[in-house]
Design a protein around this nucleic acid. Structure first.
Length: 144
DNA sequence: CGTCTTTGACCAGCGC
DNA sequence: GCGCTGGTCAAAGACG
């Protein structure tokens, strides 16, 4: 298993019946510095060291079509905060946030027309943890 | 030499 | 209205 196999989470298939259900058909997350394979919901259901912090699906139809949608935050244990997850990320900002001695980094998907953003920040309590927030949906396949 | 990060400045929203 | 705070821009430089 390598970092190249990591597929960032993306919003679940919209289910008109039960929107609150969280499904990540082929998403993975990082735990203890290693990639875990399998659906994210399985890991979060268990007692893994990673955890889903927030999940904010966007019910706006317009945003569904444009690919700008849900927001997902993950708290994972990892040495590195920037890794090759199959997408190319361009760092565009760094900021010191209040209430934390650690900087927060801002990344945007390299692909033009794809407005997916991610935000990486170390846990204030335990610096060995990294909090990653994904925002939006990739409107393209993973590009090497 | 091209690509990507760095970093301070800039901007917009919000509370006072 | 003003200043703080979080988010973004863009020029310059690091790095292979």
């Amino acid at each position: 298993m390598s970092y190249n196999e990591f597929i960032p989470p993306h919003p679940p298939e919209t289910d008109s019946v039960n929107r609150s259900k969280i499904e990540f058909p082929e998403a993975y997350f990082i735990s203890d510095g290693w990639l875990q394979d399998g659906p994210i919901e399985n890991h979060f259901a268990g007692s893994g060291s990673g955890s889903l912090l927030i999940h904010e699906p966007n019910d706006n139809r317009e945003s569904e079509s444009t690919g700008i949608g849900g927001r997902y935050a993950f708290k994972t244990k990892s040495e590195v905060e920037v890794l090759d997850d199959g997408y190319r990320w361009r760092k565009y900002g760094k900021k010191m946030v209040k209430n934390s001695p650690n900087p927060r980094n801002y990344y945007r998907c390299w692909k033009e027309g794809c407005s997916v953003k991610k935000r990486v920040e170390r846990d204030r309590e335990d610096p060995s943890y990294v909090i990653t927030t994904y925002e939006g949906i990739h409107n393209h396949q993973r590009a090497s």
